[in-house]
Design a protein around this nucleic acid. Structure first.
Lengths: 157, 157
DNA sequence: TATTGTTATACTCTATAACTATA
DNA sequence: TATAGTTATAGAGTATAACAATA
């Protein structure tokens, strides 16, 4: 995997692919466009002791009121059972707290601690820089257009 | 995972998320935008005995000259070691053939059989229909814009 | 009865290293 | 010495089902 792109260029496979019908499938293009992106962001966040999944949970926990684990699952497109380990890890390192929701004692409100907020601010800069690098071939306007289209897909359902 | 979207809507998490800083990260939006897409395409292709990965390999194998496994790896953003099982499966069902490259006997040219091409044509329709459904909230022009931006990311490197 | 969080389990995907045959 | 394909293995991500506490 590490040398997939090099091989790609070296063998001319890149140019062949560009003309194939599948290279016009949005689904396919999406996977290929962001395959390296997640790897890059993960490796950058590693310095802060985070991966994209923990970073995402932390991001939501930094919101005004926090969120229940069920809400986190919905927001992050994960199963509720996967949230448990993610919140466990963040709680263990003191970045978030689980507070029982007074309104419904079944629910736990996941909220960032002050340390969690400080780390998130740094992580956000790291992730933002990685995004700009990974999408350096786009103009600022194109990145904004892409962002707007993705937001329409995600939030218009 | 199956009910992530329902939970999302029901709890109002959708609206909360839309205002969080992370909901403007292209990386994050991308994951969320296409999380269900891959599931949908996979379930549709299942009827033809394919998944997106086999479908992708078959798509390249349907090109003029086929491709070596190394080229496939580069094109599909996979490790060469992962290509083996994918080609094995397609070869077992008679959809592709592995021909030794006369110019370099280390390489195997993976090429679709006539049956492989027929199945690919059907699979392409299925995948295309799934894409249009999954992105039904976009206009045709917006889908074209998205496609163009993704192609720029993938093919301008 | 239904829902939240939790545990457990199986499966797919990803990453890495080593081996073989050819070059 | 280097490269193509292959095998093996470990880790990360995904999907399901069941259970206790609470509603």
């Amino acid at each position: 995997m590490s040398s997939a792109e090099d091989t790609d260029r070296a063998t001319g496979a890149h140019d062949i692919l560009a003309g194939l019908p599948i290279a016009f499938d949005i689904e396919f293009l999406n996977v290929k466009a962001f395959a390296s992106g997640t790897r890059i962001v993960n490796s950058r966040l590693q310095r802060l002791g985070l991966r994209v999944r923990e970073y995402s949970v932390l991001a939501v926990a930094c919101g005004e009121v926090g969120a229940t684990q069920r809400q986190l699952a919905g927001m992050l497109e994960l199963d509720p059972s996967q949230i448990v380990a993610l919140v466990d890890a963040l709680e263990r390192t003191g970045l978030v707290r689980r507070d029982i929701d007074p309104a419904d004692r079944r629910s736990r409100l996941v909220r960032a601690t002050p340390e969690g907020r400080r780390l998130f601010d740094r992580a956000r800069e790291v992730a933002g820089a990685a995004e700009r690098e990974a999408l350096a071939m786009l103009t600022d306007a194109e990145r904004d257009t892409l962002r707007a289209l993705l937001r329409k897909i995600v939030f218009s359902g």
